[in-house]
């Protein structure tokens, strides 16, 4: 277990500035999910922490030790790669033993640690197989095992579940949650799957073009997004936005240019207590079983409403769109959220 700190870390590839300046503190034992759109620099940040990529500027600390110039093997970090990166010519056993051999542990300790990890991740049956003889889920577990045998201070995951099918993803997700409960090491977990981030992490850090938009507990970033970007990024389907000028009958804080409300707070009716957004034609109906996403065009904006069950609305229906006053989020011209009371 160890704390991690990015202090003003920046990274450029040539003239291309990928990370302009990252400040992020991660407490010892914390599980932080790093999320953001593709290409925003998540992997780059993780790789800088691992030592696989050298920052252009700034410092990185692990447990108050400046590791910026330290080689990957001396940082006490392990990483689970998206591709798993299992050594194809070694058996599962040898894959697990490799970090221990490099650390020059004795044979009996190596055996002990491998058995421990194999039992924890249910790998005992697979020890003599080569990676090519494993299923995707099994490879994933071996990759986790290899990262764990060394008892790293910080465990890094780069989209570890993205190559698994939906069902397996759910199962491995719960295994990772149980694992963190058990080993309690600090985890930095890159994903662009919101559900993974929301369900696994103690804290979610949202990156946009290499800058930290917000870092906070899952329900906080969902309930109190600091910026319009966070509001649109966290939550599926994403938050609806309309121009503040289209709204009437509600007190809009000064400086507000855009108003947002979540699809799940969108009502396809109008009544006295609700704030009316406008009306529009249904352009798409997506039934998902337990819920249905109804896409509408209201003026220039496209709005998604989430309804329970399978509602009666049909393509082309003209519907009123409204929401609760308390469900509104206000954003200024810079995309920052403005408090309703302001």
């Amino acid at each position: 277990m160890a704390s991690v700190e990015f202090r003003n870390v920046n990274k450029a590839f040539g003239t291309n500035i990928i990370v302009p300046g990252l400040n992020l503190k991660i407490a010892s034992g914390e599980f932080v999910a790093l999320v953001g759109p593709s290409g925003c620099g998540k992997s780059t940040c993780l790789r800088m922490l691992a030592g696989l990529e050298q920052p252009t500027g700034g410092r990185i600390f692990i447990d108050d030790r400046d590791v910026t110039e330290i080689s990957p093997k001396n940082r006490g970090v392990s990483m689970v790669f998206q591709s798993y990166a299992l050594y194809p010519h070694m058996t599962v056993h040898d894959n697990l033993a490799f970090p221990l051999k490099m650390a020059k542990l004795g044979a009996s300790e190596i055996t002990e640690r491998i058995n421990e990890v194999a039992a924890m991740l249910d790998l005992s049956e697979l020890l003599l197989r080569k990676p090519a003889q494993l299923s995707g889920g099994q490879k994933q577990r071996v990759a986790m095992g290899r990262a764990l045998v060394r008892k790293p201070q910080v465990l890094l995951f780069d989209e570890p579940l993205s190559n698994l099918d939906a069902q397996l993803r759910v199962r491995v997700r719960s295994e990772i949650a149980a694992l963190h409960e058990r080993i309690k090491s600090t985890i930095v977990y890159v994903t662009h799957d919101q559900v993974e981030a929301m369900t696994l992490a103690d804290r979610i850090a949202i990156l946009n073009k290499g800058s930290l938009e917000q870092a906070g507990p899952p329900l906080e970033v969902y309930g109190l997004p600091r910026t319009r970007f966070v509001a649109s990024f966290i939550g599926t389907p994403p938050m609806n936005f309309v121009k503040a000028s289209t709204l009437h009958g509600v007190k809009i804080p000064s400086g507000t240019t855009t108003v947002g409300f979540r699809p799940e707070a969108t009502e396809l009716a109008s009544s006295g207590e609700l704030i009316r957004i406008g009306s529009g034609k249904v352009s798409l109906v997506e039934p998902l079983g337990s819920t249905t996403h109804i896409h509408l065009r209201v003026g220039d904006d496209s709005i998604i409403a989430e309804s329970r069950g399978t509602p009666a609305q049909r393509l082309g229906d003209e519907l009123a769109v409204s929401t609760q006053a308390s469900s509104l989020f206000f954003f200024d011209a810079n995309g920052n959220r403005v408090d309703a009371g302001a």
Binding site: P72, S78, Y87
Partner: peptide
Amino acid sequence: VPTDLKEAAALDGAGPVQVFRHV
């Protein structure tokens, strides 16, 4: 030779010569 294998080995504690020899 996949780059991530060499990187994984470097993280697993192998120096450049060991990465070459073992991976």
